[in-house]
Design a protein around this nucleic acid. Structure first.
Lengths: 204, 204, 204, 204
DNA sequence: TATGAATGAGGGTTCATTCAT
DNA sequence: CATGAATGAACCCTCATTCAT
């Protein structure tokens, strides 16, 4: 008689790993990576500092896994959008919406990314941050350029300034966004897009 | 009647102090406060770590002085703008312009402020960060509300979302801004205002 | 009347124990006792670190068992030689030969003994190392003295220097000896004895 | 009036370094490198563990400096001997004598070398140990071969066995040698050479 | 003013060991 | 018998800070 494949104990260890990663991400986001002690993470997870090393190689590898997991998921979403063959305006709208969804799902990871990616990128281990950032720039800047050419976006603005404006505008939201708040990610995206595309001034 | 320059060196060279603060700010901005060692600052300044303690009480007091100096100057500018009795739109324009000027003058301090202020604010010593932030919110949010009431700003947007949008949009620029670049602070302000007020989409 | 082999597994598989001891000895010899982690031994044995504790009380008890087993066998051989009533030269020859045989059989244990016995001897638990060493010195030094008295060994040499010379000469071989090499233990013993007794210089 | 160049304070820091290295070497030799804590060294030197890092980069770099300093001096002596153009027997005599002098001067370093060099040699950083050992083998083995060819050394012995015999015989002495003991290095060398060259048996 | 040397608190990490399953 | 997970002590090392010179 074969053992019944019941729903319990399906995940022997990845589950614990995931929990620990979530806990760590939360602490990193709140206090900054450097200011976070491995003991603090362990405390938060209800274990001793040394025990973390059963699951992870190092503090850095925890950070690595948090960031790479986030970026993997982000690019899954982005790639889908970019492959959909939408017009420039619709692409921007979809990217912004997708971004807010990612912020909703990976708030901590995004916050960490914002704060740490710049100096992390110098390290070999985090070279993928640079790659990702380049791909990111290509996707957004390219779309904006297409939009200017198609005359759906203004041509009187410095395009790189515009790129930074849109990019920052979206991602900094991670610093104040709290999941389960008043607005859904989609609603926030809608309003942000409205501001970015049409401005906050009343049309005269 | 100017103070007599007596023969005893009571205040050790404020010029050197200023240089050291600038150096420290630069390093803090580049590497993050926690990741910056006092020794790195000293290296950069061409002295030994211990020697810094002749000039400053502690690493924290260096940070303190950088941030408070910046905020003092910022509020000097802001207060002038707010006291000028301009209309809401003109006030926003002036605040944004003033902000980019401050970024130009205190790039490093602004970058540090962006990265560290949140968790610094928890400490007694940096209580002024909270005060400043409250004053800041009052000034901007108030102006936006005045603008909505005066029908110069859109009323269909969540006002707090708008506030965050405008606020972040301006200050994150410190993360990429390099003084002496292609655009002057005023030109950047102009383009940013144009985007924020009128949007990046072509009007139809 | 032999002990009854009762049905309960009081001593869990001595064969497995032996394998584990051999594995451990090999690793200790290669890396040094302190530098060897219990996990490394377990890896080598194809199990997890914790599982070793089913077989042994502690890392130290593994070492203990390796060394005491080796010394037991060594003294079995030595005692036989010493009880045979040979002349001093023949006794030295027999001891050296027996020593190389032990090196052949317990290379790892001998290497461990060489490297670790000195500081191990300080511990109560390893007091038997001191005893053994004293017995050892008595046997060898005594034989040498008998030989000097009997005028088969030179009398113009410091006897303790000679003792150390012969002793070290033999046992250090464990550091390079590999079982199954070019020379059998007996052949190595023969050549060593030839050098020790007659020197490496051509007789003039 | 220029400062007089008095004899005090000539060595501002290298002296301290040297003391610390000597202390560390002593502890390493007594307890083994791995079993020695950095704290123990500091204790012995009358300072706190952290203070050692003002003088050295790491525990490993202390070991490195101890070993490389020793080897540098050793090879100075050896090279002089090898360059002297002596006959094989005289070369061996000179090398052995020089070796005991080095043991006298660097007892701790030699003991460490004996115990740790094998597994240290695997690390990139200690690659010079391998080089040194190869040079060493070349010098000794070459001299022995010259001696066999010149018929001053026996030809009926396995030459590599002879090499190991002579090599080990000399260097293991570091494990029991205490400077300032009964015999001078030169006297020990004389007796060792006498045993190695002519054997311990009475000539018949 | 600056240096050289040290302090001491902690931080990341390792590892022998335990124990429920 | 063996695993997976955790413990806790200890270890190497870093760094802000101090202080005599």
């Amino acid at each position: 008689m074969p053992k019944q494949n019941d729903s319990k104990n399906v995940t022997p260890s990845p589950a614990r790993r995931g929990e620990l990663l979530a806990t760590a991400a939360e602490v990193f986001a709140a206090q900054g990576y450097n200011a976070t002690t491995v003991r603090k993470i362990a405390d938060e997870a209800g274990m001793l500092a040394g025990s973390l090393y059963y699951h992870f190689d190092s503090k850095e590898s925890i950070l690595d896994e948090i960031l790479s997991t986030f970026l993997d998921e982000l690019w899954q979403g982005y790639d889908e959008v970019l492959a959909a063959g939408l017009g420039p305006r619709e692409t921007i709208e979809a990217l912004v919406t997708e971004s807010f969804r990612e912020i909703d799902r990976h708030r901590a990871a995004v916050a960490i990314y914002q704060k740490e990616s710049r100096h992390l990128a110098k390290q070999e281990r985090f070279a993928y941050l640079v790659e990702s950032q380049q791909k990111f720039e290509k996707a957004w800047l390219g779309t904006l350029e297409r939009g200017v050419a198609a005359q759906v976006f203004r041509s009187d603005l410095d395009i790189r300034l515009t790129y930074r404006f849109v990019r920052d505008t979206v991602w900094v939201a991670a610093s104040w966004y709290r999941p389960g708040g008043q607005h859904s990610p989609e609603e926030i995206a809608r309003q942000y897009l409205s501001m970015v595309l049409d401005g906050i001034a009343v049309r005269t």
